[in-house]
Design a protein around this nucleic acid. Structure first.
Lengths: 151, 151
DNA sequence: ATGATAACTTAGCCTAGGCTTAGTTTCGGA
DNA sequence: TCCGAAACTAAGCCTAGGCTAAGTTATCAT
């Protein structure tokens, strides 16, 4: 049995470094995922995703949206038709699909462990980018068990 | 009853924007927390926290550590005595204390919902910065119940 | 059909957080 | 004691992601 006190020695340095590297990697993709997810939502709910709406919903200036969308375009995730909104490339759609699924899963999980839906939604925004596949699998398992046990 | 399909309409734009703002705020403090937490760990476990060890454990160059530590110093979290390592100011210690508590809580929670300890540790690194107070409270509640039920 | 308004872009600036390469300092062992 | 290796700093560069202010350009309503 492990000690309960926070006295476990530090992990080996390279191990430790790998965690932070994963972390930085996740940070780099987080913005792309947020934009792509939001574009997909807007396309679905409003029929179009205009830069001005993205700016409004992200709480950011239009200039920032222009710059970010430029990077997304460079990375093959988004296409633009000025004054006709933004569109997702196939790989953008793919990213949006998995991002949304992840988001939904995290929200449902947070609610299941006792968070109110509004806070769950807010927190999911931050947490969804940092949960590993293993963690997501554990969340899904937890939800499945919860549903079985509940009936 | 709400629809189960992901068809809930988008939240109001300002609402939506506020979530992302919180998010960006958390991102800004994440690096500081990671450094301060690691410095505290090194001081506790090794007796000193040298820049070179931070670099090794963060997986980053020494120059990057110098720059980051400069910002931490500017922000009143850290003090340096060259060749004698890094030290935390009272407010740095405070930050380390709460960061560590949060980290421990998230790890224990992740293990409780079925993650293996190693992955829990890795994921906690990313998740701890993005869980709200409400979420942390929910995690703690969950663990408490779990312990009651378990006996 | 044209002109005001709204949408979008450009330019220029900033900070955080990375990097490498090239110095400085300090410490410790011969 | 002194000198080489290790620790640290400095300089200069880069990208992402923010900002404002100043253009452009489409669209739509008259």
């Amino acid at each position: 049995m492990q000690r309960t006190m926070a006295k476990r020695p530090l992990p080996p340095a390279d191990h430790h470094a790998a965690r932070f590297a994963r972390q930085r990697e996740a940070d780099r993709t987080a913005t792309a995922e947020d934009y792509v997810e939001l574009i997909a939502d807007l396309l679905r709910e409003e029929g179009e995703a205009r830069a001005v709406d993205l700016a409004r919903r992200m709480g950011v200036s239009q200039a920032t949206v222009t710059a970010t969308v430029g990077r997304l375009q460079r990375d093959g995730l988004v296409e633009t038709k000025p004054y006709r909104g933004l569109f997702l490339t196939p790989s953008g759609q793919e990213m949006a699909r998995t991002a949304k699924a992840r988001h939904e899963l995290v929200v449902r999980f947070l609610i299941a462990v006792g968070l109110d839906p509004e806070t769950a939604e807010t927190d999911a925004e931050g947490l969804e980018h940092h949960a590993s596949e293993k963690a997501l699998a554990a969340f899904a398992r937890f939800l499945a068990e919860r549903e079985d046990g509940g009936r």
